[in-house]
Amino acid sequence: MNNKLVVYPFENYLYKGFMLDKLIYLPSALELFLINDNDRLIRVSFDWFHSFRVVDEGDVIKMLNSFNGEMILGIYTLVDSEYLEWFHQQSLGIHLKENITHYMVVTMNDVIEILSSEKPVIS
């Protein structure tokens, strides 16, 4: 599989300068709070998710190179996701019939990836 990046269709927000301020992990929910230098706050909430991971943006050099400069600050979905393929292998395919989407939130300092059957709520 080759990751293919798609900009998430919620462009009412400008993500320039946003950093991860806080991440709240609950058994069935995940909330990301992004903040910029002007203290503007964006909340990205997933009411249900299967898996997530957080990586410092400086440690995803291979990923950055594979997108040929397409990956900038913002929210994306990935098609043909290697992370989703890994998840299905680890769960022995029990979720294959579910509509799981690989979301990626890219901030100035972090890359947060979420596998979720629910769309995020952004406010």
Rank of each mutant, 00 (worst) to 15 (best):
V7Y: 12
V44P: 03
F67H: 00
F87I: 01
V79G: 03
G74S: 04
L14T: 10
E85V: 13
M19I: 14
T107Q: 01
K119T: 09
M71V: 02
I114G: 01
Y25T: 12
K119V: 10
D37L: 06
Y8L: 07
L41Y: 09
T77W: 00
N36Y: 00
Y15P: 01
L92V: 12
D21R: 03
V55E: 12
L32V: 01
I72F: 05
E113T: 09
V44Q: 07
R53C: 00
N68T: 04
M1A: 15
M19R: 10
K119E: 09
K119A: 15
N38M: 08
L30A: 01
V7E: 15
F67A: 00
P9W: 01
G74K: 02
V111N: 11
L84E: 07
K62C: 10
L78Q: 00
K16S: 13
N36G: 02
S28M: 12
R40G: 05
M63F: 02
Y8P: 02
L84K: 14
S116Y: 05
S116F: 06
F18T: 04
I112L: 05
S45T: 09
I35R: 07
E11Q: 12
N109A: 07
N109E: 10
D21M: 05
H88C: 04
E85I: 14
N2S: 13
N38P: 03
L26R: 11
L115K: 05
M108F: 15
N99W: 10
V121E: 15
I24S: 15
S45I: 12
P27W: 00
K62E: 06
S123Q: 11
K22F: 07
R43P: 11
G93D: 08
Q89G: 11
R43F: 06
G74A: 04
P27V: 06
V121F: 15
N3L: 09
H88D: 05
G17D: 04
